[in-house]
Nucleic acid binder design. Structure first.
Lengths: 265, 265
DNA sequence: TAGTGGTCTAGACCACTAT
DNA sequence: TAGTGGTCTAGACCACTAA
């Protein structure tokens, strides 16, 4: 069956043209190019878990047959997904669902780099895991209702043994049910990898606001610096498919021997 | 004349295929797809000033005829240039060379946003303009020799009347000959616009390293805060075509009512 | 109405990977 | 050798803009 709601194509001999198809007869009058509709369908399959992180998705020819469009149209849809880092193309092998269990993904969201030397993976020390009800401000940023259950995590990250990042995380309780300190302690690697594997929630985009602040007594002690030491403060909201917020993260970065790297273009 | 060094195409009836053409007979054995070669040629025309910022470039069909390739190949080349913000496509009108004289370009490189309200253009107050010889560190970042002539600029930027950014700039003297305090004072709008219009040097990419620091006496006074107030410190190196460094900028940002906005993907 | 970029198709061949 | 993504062509029609 054709999963596309009536796009103007007949026997396959007549080009469809760029006519943005309408959604059925008398339905929503949404117009969009065919490849965008294909892209949306592919995204749905990613979101639903039909194709899981790290897995191979069907080939372009197979998808073209399934959707009854040309390979070029499927290709353009996948091109955009690849540009958004949702999938990865590998010539000769196929197209794979992106995963946070890859070296290259690790440092795309960890922007703190050493001033000298090569980037290392930090050691994590979980300080706190607790189930709480969301404060108003947290609830608003996570698109929850104030008082909804959230999981609160506090951790210290050490680079080469030196405490460098102090982070607080708030996660929607409904999604991350059963996340305990033990599981966090056992887990090696980036937290987004755990979220993806254990909770089926893959972070795909984030928005950060960065400021400079002075260390309070608690942060100063944990980071091993004097009180009022200037720290970089980053507030991050992460989103999964459908622009759904799934994490609020507030980090204090010690930038004595590290810097936040950003490339503008 | 065919500006492409012998790509394997005959009478125009035989598809060229994806064979990366060699550069002439017995020349550099560099292989690259046709569209990448076209892209390089287009970039040359941008760099040389054949098409100036804001201007319309030739249409896809005209370029296809000029280079003796199909329109689809030209299209793919231009697609990449558009993705890199070197050109802007406008349906029905044509493809235009990007320019810093556009609203949308202003805030792509000015990442400091007000915590509340809409972004405003800052007022600039030039504090200092001087011709100097490049310190070793500056020379290294700008890919100059230590002692080479550089232009040093110091300025204060005010948002809604409040001093918020204190910046130092180092520019290669050879490129920005004749840049005076008067011209900087007279000029309204982003400095990159002036660089582009008056000096034919267009910034297209930048790399920033960000830290938190405490305000020294001088910065504190100019920004109207107490000494040791935490400030965000951003060191930026800007590049023009060919990854040539053309600016070193060091800014201190007061983040009491503003934040550095960054989107990760 | 003419010209531009935007979409879509169909078919060819290439480069790479695995069997 | 078969299958995958990558490149290239040729031609059609659509959406938008301006004269």
């Amino acid at each position: 069956m054709n999963p596309l709601p009536s796009h103007p194509q007949g026997d396959g001999n007549m080009p469809a043209g760029a006519s943005g198809s309408t959604a059925g007869a008398g339905n929503l009058p949404t117009f969009s190019p065919l490849y965008q509709q294909i892209k949306a369908l592919l995204t749905q399959s990613l979101q639903s878990g039909e194709w899981k992180p790290g897995e191979l998705i069907p080939s372009e020819v197979e998808l073209a047959a399934r959707f009854k469009v040309s390979q070029g149209t499927v290709r353009k849809a996948i091109d955009e997904l690849a540009a958004e880092n949702l999938v990865m193309r590998r010539q000769g092998k196929g197209t794979f669902v992106s995963t946070h269990h890859e070296e290259r993904a690790h440092f795309r969201f960890l922007r703190l780099m050493p001033d000298a030397g090569v980037p290392h993976h930090p050691d994590n020390r979980i300080l706190d895991v607790a189930r709480r009800s969301a404060p108003a401000e947290v609830a608003q940023l996570l698109d929850l209702k104030a008082g909804d259950a959230v999981i609160y995590i506090r951790r210290l990250m050490l680079f080469d043994g030196a405490p460098t990042i102090l982070e607080e995380l708030w996660l929607p309780g409904a999604i991350f049910k059963g996340l305990t300190a033990e599981r966090l302690d056992q887990y090696k690697g980036p937290m987004y990898g755990l979220f993806e594997s254990e909770f089926g929630t893959r972070m795909i985009r984030a928005s950060e606001k960065i400021r400079a602040v002075g260390a309070d007594a608690s942060a100063a002690e944990l980071l091993g610096v004097a009180a009022a030491t200037p720290l970089l403060f980053a507030e991050r909201v992460s989103f999964t498919y459908g622009d759904k917020a799934v994490e609020l993260r507030r980090g204090l970065y010690l930038t004595a021997h590290h810097h936040y790297q950003n490339d503008l273009s």
